[in-house]
Nucleic acid binder design. Structure first.
Lengths: 214, 214
DNA sequence: GTCTATAGCAGGATAGAC
DNA sequence: GTCTATCCTGCTATAGAC
């Protein structure tokens, strides 16, 4: 049987590259390790991607970016049934997305770690992460929340709040090993549910500070 | 003049190593780059530290750990004059410590980046960071804040709040490049003051959620 | 498109003179 | 304690057979 064989090697390499880059960082991973894990030939990376940095960027362009779209769609689907979502519902949906969403646990962790590396240690993909993903996502959250806030709410403070809420959520994701040690919990279903509730109520109150300023 | 010459080379290497590890990460920095910046000989690292990983750990043990002590002392000094500090004063002092404290701007950034790398990508220093620094610091914040909360406040929720508050503060520090892009501000004095106020009021309200649960 | 083979170089580590 | 010189491993990248 002739397989419909679309460039399977390329895909396998992208998969393993993403996994390893997320886990160890760009410099700590060798092409040999990637092609080994992908069960392909050492030379395949250069054939398909030209060089290592290009592979890294293609991981962002073809995998990471596509996944943010899936996450965003799912987030919007959660809210689609609700005509006028409350702030609590919006924040809750967002937190669930990052801590217990439709992605597998490993995939979600990988996704945030990859992003995290660019945020804290700017590389070639930072501009893409910020301009194509974070800015529009933040704006979307603002648009969803705004109707529930006083019309005079200061735009700049609101943006700081959104960044803070995302910051907490990301923090509970990528600092998972440290949080686990501090709290004495694995990230099982029970603990994740607790985290989502915590983030939602904490952030809801934090946003309330905006109301009192005006 | 005979200098009192304590092992100057060793200190210079530690300095440069810390700077470079924080900026680029362990794997991305070579011994050659470190000794070059420290204007010492290539072999000096192996002579003084044995190997590269040992140098990395000594950076944590001798520099990073010592700095956390300084930060903690300064934090306590800020509160020393106040007999019964309010939650707002405690959080404010903490946020100021990380965003605009007594350390130089570069040193503070370096400090948090180094920590951040271990939190998100566990290495050999994670246990030390968590057990010797984060856990006691968190506990100290709890002890300071507790008197202002209802006696029945759930310990676990309180700890989640503290982690969240520190998480936001760290996030605004290490994700500085991304935050700058999103907000369109450099981290000048004005912006830092704004951030400190934001964190304080946001966290204060978040903590208030605890009061209502009981 | 996949493989082997290898060029060419940078890295960590060490031996041994001073 | 500092330096030079060097070993050896492991890396990226590429050439060229299949």
């Amino acid at each position: 049987m002739a397989q419909p064989t679309v460039d399977n090697t390329r895909e396998r390499i992208l998969d393993q590259a993403e996994r390893l880059f997320a886990a160890k960082g760009y410099e700590a991973v060798s092409i040999r390790e990637i092609t080994g894990a992908a069960e392909s030939n050492l030379a395949a990376v250069n054939y398909h991607f030209g060089n290592k940095m290009n592979l890294y960027m293609d991981v962002f362009r073809e995998r990471w970016l596509a996944r943010t779209r899936r996450i965003r769609e799912n987030f919007l689907n959660q809210l689609a049934d609700i005509p006028e979502p409350t702030v609590s519902e919006v924040i809750g949906a967002m937190a669930r997305e990052f801590l217990d969403g439709p992605l597998g646990d490993e995939e979600r962790f990988r996704h945030v770690q990859l992003m995290q590396r660019e945020l804290s240690h700017p590389g070639k993909a930072l501009r893409m992460v910020v301009e194509e993903v974070m800015r529009p996502y933040n704006q979307q959250l603002i648009d969803l929340i705004r109707p529930n806030l006083p019309a005079a709410t200061d735009e700049e403070h609101l943006r700081l709040c959104i960044i803070s809420i995302l910051g907490i959520t990301l923090y509970f994701t990528f600092a998972r090993p440290a949080v686990s040690m501090l709290m004495g919990h694995e990230y099982d279903e029970q603990f994740k549910t607790m985290l989502i509730e915590h983030i939602t109520s904490f952030a809801l109150k934090g946003l309330a500070a905006l109301k009192e300023e005006n």
